[in-house]
Computed example of a mutant assay.
Amino acid sequence: MVSQKTIRIMGCGNLWMGDDGVGIHTVEKLTAMKDKLEGGIPVSDPFFSDFPELSLDSLFYLKEVDILDAGVSGLDMLCFLEGFDKIIIIDALKSDQNLGAILRIKGEDLLDGEGVGKMMSSHDVSVPTVLGIAREVQGLPEIVVYGVEIQKHPDEVNLTTDMSPEVEAAIDRLIPLVLDEIRKDLTD
């Protein structure tokens, strides 16, 4: 049975800054998967074979969530947080992890300074700053951030649409994690 919990998956980043676009590329793949499922394409379709770690059971729940390309939204992100019980943010981060590493960070950990790395640095305002403003002004839904370790320091500007192979490969490892997260939320 599917719960009535409302979930939004939000990809953040800049496609013109290489690895920083990982959040956008991830939600593009999730949107394509959702579109195929809603169009009646069976999970046995070759499209889904790119995701061998994917639980076919978890794909069902993708149809129950909202997916948003938030780009480099800055303070506009405040309106993207409203009306949902949970927000899953996917973005690049720079910390001390290996290139392409995936970290799951609870929103309250980012707000309390426990989160790692630098999130959404190509944006006007960082994710922790937006979450802090939202908490004070409008309240916050449950927030979970999936950060992918990027190669360059986020403040370095190198215009390219190419991602490093490690970050690109992380997308296919990240998708099953996100789908498993929404499956757990929607079956509780």
Rank of each mutant, 00 (worst) to 15 (best):
G100H: 04
A70G: 15
M33N: 02
F51S: 04
V22D: 00
M119T: 10
T129I: 14
S121A: 13
L140K: 01
E64C: 09
V148P: 02
S44F: 11
D69Y: 07
I90M: 07
G139K: 03
D66N: 10
E142Q: 08
G132R: 06
E114W: 12
V127D: 00
M33P: 02
K94C: 02
L78M: 04
G107D: 04
L59H: 09
E149A: 03
E142G: 11
V144R: 02
G115E: 09
P46M: 04
I102S: 08
G132H: 06
D69M: 11
D50P: 05
L56N: 06
D85S: 07
I143V: 14
L78R: 00
P141F: 05
L110M: 15
G100C: 12
L30S: 06
L75A: 05
T31E: 13
I102R: 10
K106N: 15
Q97D: 11
G113R: 12
L131M: 07
L111G: 02
R135L: 10
L78I: 04
G21W: 04
G117Q: 06
E142A: 14
P141M: 06
D20K: 02
D124Q: 11
M77E: 03
T31H: 12
H123M: 10
I90H: 08
D50Y: 10
G18N: 07
K94Y: 03
V137C: 12
A134E: 01
D76S: 14
A101P: 02
E53Y: 07
A32H: 12
A134D: 05
G147D: 00
N98Y: 15
L78Y: 00
G100L: 14
Q151W: 06
G83W: 04
D45P: 08
G39N: 08
V130H: 05
D66M: 11
D57C: 07
L103A: 07
M119G: 03
V130P: 05
D45E: 09
A32R: 13
S49K: 13
V148A: 09
R135A: 15
S95F: 00
M77V: 00
I88E: 03
P42W: 08
T26C: 09
I90T: 10
F84Q: 05
Q138R: 14
Y146L: 10
L111N: 08
G18A: 11
M119A: 14
R135C: 08
S49M: 11
H25S: 14
D45T: 05
M17E: 03
V43W: 05
F51A: 03
V127W: 01
I133Q: 05
L111M: 13
V144D: 03
C79F: 04
L131G: 05
H25E: 15
A134H: 00
V145S: 10
G107P: 03
N98G: 12
A32M: 10
D76F: 11
S49A: 15
